[in-house]
Design a protein around this nucleic acid. Sequence first.
DNA 1: CGCGGTGTTGAGACCTGTCAAGACGTGTGG
DNA 2: CCACACGTCTTGACAGGTCTCAACACCGCG
Lengths: 239, 239
Amino acid sequence: LIDAHLARLRKRAPISATEEEALRGLVSRTIRAPADRTLVREGELLDHSLLLIEGWLGRAKDRRSGRRQIAELHVAGDFADLHGFTLKRLDHNIISLSDCLIATVPHNRLERLTVDHPRLARIYWFLTNVDAAIHRQWAISLGGSIALARMAHLFCELYVRLEIVGKTRGDTFDFPLTQEEVAMCIGLTPVHVNRTLQDLRGKGLVELESRQVRIPDLQALMRTAEFNPSYLYLDRIEI
Amino acid sequence: LIDAHLARLRKRAPISATEEEALRGLVSRTIRAPADRTLVREGELLDHSLLLIEGWLGRAKDRRSGRRQIAELHVAGDFADLHGFTLKRLDHNIISLSDCLIATVPHNRLERLTVDHPRLARIYWFLTNVDAAIHRQWAISLGGSIALARMAHLFCELYVRLEIVGKTRGDTFDFPLTQEEVAMCIGLTPVHVNRTLQDLRGKGLVELESRQVRIPDLQALMRTAEFNPSYLYLDRIEI
DNA sequence: CGCGGTGTTGAGACCTGTCAAGACGTGTGG
DNA sequence: CCACACGTCTTGACAGGTCTCAACACCGCG
């Protein structure tokens, strides 16, 4: 069930059989959620976190204007609101962007895990810091790039993150978001997303069709995006 | 020495005398840094973190174009690169924006602290998650607001954060950044920062003169910025 | 077959960037 | 004391990127 999550952990640090056992014991139950639901609301007191097994989630804030802004995307294997374990409530909503399969992890089990396995606690602290790095990179990208580079950056990040958990097929991956939802991620209007997408296609960098993304030349896309994967901290660490 | 830091911690959770003792023992030495220096470079292996006693630091990335982007500002009492404790290296630079007084905290002391005082470890995990929330909010602001609101948001955040550590005087606080550095924070050109600043002053929202910011009407500024301080997690938590 | 969501296109307005020039203030050296 | 250099701030005119609004095309689905 949590194989993708384990793959994500093992990309960074070795996980022993005992630890794997403890991690598998975190899940209390699984739930299915259809697309376009708000799964966690801003401000709610939390007693569990959501481990995404399959599908796409987003961290979203709604503006007064009604416009919604997405600050991070989550894919299979991600702990969508692990930060809720220390924060106790979120400053944003967790929304489903596709049909999802989700495991719930009670905070008291996380509590016990951190006591019994301080090394795993450290790894989870590490992972929330990687989420911070992703936010940081989005801020950099939103603040300093034009539309084309912003969109290119998004696709680069998703490709790399999906590859870790085995969700790519060659240069292609499933991508359930509408153009309107992409717009929420990179701070553009849906209309401009459409035009930028055509621009990317015209340059031979990204093809998006029937909810699939194809990246014919990842290196070229990375250059366009000024993408450097170091912020994802994919090398092994010693903990 | 670390009084501002303790104030920041105590805003969120009570700290016992024993814990305070342990925290004061973290500092190994203090260093002075002039403005405009790179104190930590992207990618460097780290064996200590920087606790800012006095002055301003920033988390910055440099773009290929030469343009520099700042992803977070740090003020007195902030652990500027606590995330370096789990990440081991940073994906960005730490730069000084003013003359600074900084305490260095060796990672092995942090290591011991987290073992001896798991509650403080949890609080520090919490604090890195607040940094993440700040990045998230910057991404939201950069992606979804016009220049005026972005700048208003920056000043709101700084006012609230400085007030916690007693660095405001009424509606005023010291602000050593040049307009060019403000531009790096909110993703604008210096020229447009200048015009936006005049716009804010014209609306009676912010005055910036001789390195001091005055906010005549904080409520009005918050409305302009669509600022909600909940992302700073200033209420008490139970850990 | 019609409907709603999604994607596409065009024209014009608006926001922000670019470039260039000048004003201002401060510190330095003569 | 003045002259000068330098960084910073300010202003103007224009170019370019993105938004807005509106209309239409497409497609899956009831």
